[in-house]
Simulated scan of single mutants.
Amino acid sequence: MICPHCSANLLYKERTGNTCSKCRKSFVLEPKSAPHGLSDVGLRRAVERLTADGRITVTVGQLHYATGRRHLVGGAVPERRGSLGCAIPALLAGLPTLGFALPHPAGAGAVAALAGLALVAIGIRSAVRWTRFKPMKPRELLWSADDFRRSVTDPWQRGYGVLPRGLVTEDSVRPRPPAAPVAAVLCEDRTVRAFLQANAFEERHRVVVVPDPASVPAGLPVVVLHDAGAEGCLSVGRARAALAGHRVLDGGLPPRAVMAQPKALQLRQPDVLPQTMERLRGRGGPRRGRTPLARRGLVESAGRRTAHRAAGRRDPGRRAAGRRRAGRGRPGRGAAPGARRRLPHLARAEHVTTPRSSR
Score class of each variant (00 low, 15 high):
Ile122Val: 14
Gln62Trp: 01
Ala180Glu: 13
Leu163Thr: 03
Thr131Phe: 09
Ala52Gln: 12
Leu117Trp: 10
Arg45Leu: 10
Ala66Gly: 00
Pro96Val: 08
Gly61Ser: 04
Gly74Gln: 06
Phe133Ala: 08
Asp171Arg: 10
Arg176Leu: 12
Leu102Arg: 14
Pro155Asn: 09
Leu98Ile: 04
Gly61Pro: 05
Glu170Leu: 02
Pro155Val: 02
Val77Glu: 14
Pro105Lys: 13
Gly54Cys: 12
Ala127Asn: 12
Gly82Ala: 09
Phe133Asn: 12
Val73Thr: 12
Asp147Trp: 08
Glu170Asp: 11
Leu163Asp: 03
Phe148Glu: 05
Ser144Asn: 07
Pro96Lys: 12
Gly68Phe: 08
Pro105Met: 09
Cys86Glu: 08
His71Pro: 09
Ala108Trp: 15
Phe148Val: 00
Asp53Tyr: 10
Phe148Cys: 02
Leu141Cys: 07
Pro103Met: 06
Arg139Gln: 15
Gly107Arg: 11
Ala118Lys: 00
Gly68Arg: 05
Arg150Val: 02
Pro178Phe: 06
Ala121Lys: 07
Glu170Tyr: 00
Gly82Gln: 09
Ala66Arg: 01
Glu170Met: 11
Arg69Glu: 13
Arg69Cys: 03
Ser172Thr: 15
Asp147Ala: 15
Val41His: 13
Arg139Trp: 02
Arg44Ala: 12
Gly94Gln: 07
Tyr65Ala: 12
Gln157Thr: 13
Val162Ala: 15
Ala101Phe: 04
Gly116Arg: 06
